[in-house]
């Protein structure tokens, strides 16, 4: 019996297993960096776009995508990185936003409301959900995170930055 040829839907499902190397609870699909998938027989063409232009995790992501798809029986994986459909934090799925929060990272606010620092001043704390918080630094341990402090928990936390 001939196996059913894979579809792009299958590829998206398989890619659920590939996580953001810097945020291991978030899949690349939920992160929103995969912008197109075309499958022909066992050849896959993937288009992806980085969260930040200088994201150092991009090469690891490409490598893990390729390995995962080869394990699933694909014979050729071609990945193109471009900015045709640029990443925005709004591309993170609902599931991804929940995963971020459980991980202890405040999910990003909608990008369109991020017009100045004021918006980042009272980000909701991922622990207590209170907004009695303050922005400590727009730059954090990775390019995509900012550092905040919660006055109620008296602890610092990080946010996935709106972009």
């Amino acid at each position: 019996m001939k196996p059913t040829p894979a579809t792009s839907r299958d590829v998206y499902t398989w890619l659920e297993a590939v996580k953001d190397p810097e945020i291991p609870v978030l899949s690349l699909v939920d992160l929103g960096v995969i912008t197109d998938v075309v499958v022909e027989n066992t050849t896959v063409d993937i288009e992806m776009t980085p969260t930040f232009v200088g994201c150092p995790a991009l090469d690891i992501m490409k490598q893990e995508i390729t390995e995962t798809l080869l394990q699933r029986g694909m014979t050729e994986v071609r990945i193109v990185v471009n900015f045709r459909d640029p990443w925005s934090s709004d591309k993170i799925s609902e599931k991804g936003r929940r995963a971020l929060k459980e991980f202890g990272l405040a999910p990003p606010l909608p990008a369109k409301v991020f017009t100045d620092l004021e918006v980042l001043e009272h980000v909701s704390c991922p622990r207590c959900e209170g907004t009695n918080t303050t922005l400590k630094n727009v730059f954090g341990p990775t390019l995509c995170r900012s550092i905040h402090y919660c006055f109620d928990c008296q602890e610092s936390f990080e946010q996935f930055k709106p972009l």
Binding site: V53, G54, F139, G140, P141, L143, I147
Partner: peptide, 9 residues
């Protein structure tokens, strides 16, 4: 951290 992040960007 800020200058290092901006460097990376």
């Amino acid at each position: 951290i800020a200058f290092s992040s901006m460097a990376q960007d």
